Computed example of a mutant assay.
Amino acid sequence: MGEPLRSDKMSITVPSDVAAELRARAGQGNVSAYITHALVRQLEHDRLGDLVAELREFHGPVTEEELAAARAEWPRS
């Protein structure tokens, strides 16, 4: 069996209305899991943004022609 995941206890401050909606959506006992899931998604988003910036720096910006070609190949639902 693998090692147990290590957790760090943190304290955050949020507006009362946000906290109330969070508790309503997550359930009182699942607030930490809800916030962890949201943070993981945000960190993935941030890393993707870092990659896009790195690629743009290396290859230059995407041209309108490249964007149009990519959109033409994208499947439509």
Rank of each mutant, 00 (worst) to 15 (best):
Y34R: 09
W74T: 01
A53K: 11
D17I: 03
A24R: 14
L55I: 00
T36S: 04
R56C: 05
L5K: 13
G2N: 11
G27K: 11
E73H: 06
D46G: 02
Q42G: 04
E54P: 02
N30L: 12
A68V: 02
L51W: 00
R23F: 14
G60Y: 03
Q42T: 08
A53S: 07
T13W: 04
V62K: 07
E66G: 04
S32M: 08
A26S: 10
M1F: 03
A20L: 14
V18C: 11
R41T: 10
A20T: 15
W74G: 01
D50P: 09
T63F: 02
L39E: 08
Y34D: 08
E66N: 05
E64V: 04
R41I: 09
S32K: 10
L67A: 11
T13I: 12
N30K: 12
S77W: 00
R41W: 06
E44C: 06
L48N: 01
E44I: 05
L51C: 05
H45F: 07
T63P: 00
A33T: 06
A69Y: 01
R56D: 10
S7P: 04
V31P: 03
R41N: 12
P75G: 03
L51F: 08
V40Q: 14
S77T: 00
R56A: 08
R47D: 13
A26Q: 12
H59Y: 12
D8Y: 11
A69V: 03
L5S: 09
L55W: 01
E54T: 07
V14T: 05
L39C: 11
L67R: 10
A70T: 02
D17H: 13
A33Y: 07
E3K: 12
H45Q: 09
R6Q: 14
D50S: 08
D8N: 10
V31C: 06
A24G: 08
M10W: 08
V52F: 02
T36V: 05
M10R: 14
M10Q: 13
G49P: 00
E64W: 01
E73A: 12
A20K: 15
P15Y: 03
M1S: 14
V40G: 07
L43C: 09
T13M: 13
E44H: 06
D46F: 02
S32V: 04
P15R: 15
P61F: 00
G49W: 01
E65N: 08
V18P: 02
T36E: 15
L39I: 04
R6E: 15
D50N: 09
D50T: 11
V62E: 09
A70Y: 11
P75F: 08
G29L: 13
R56S: 07
A26P: 04
A20S: 15
A70D: 05
A33F: 06
Y34M: 09
M10L: 08
H59K: 09
N30W: 14
R76N: 03
E44R: 11
G49R: 14
E66Q: 14
A38S: 10
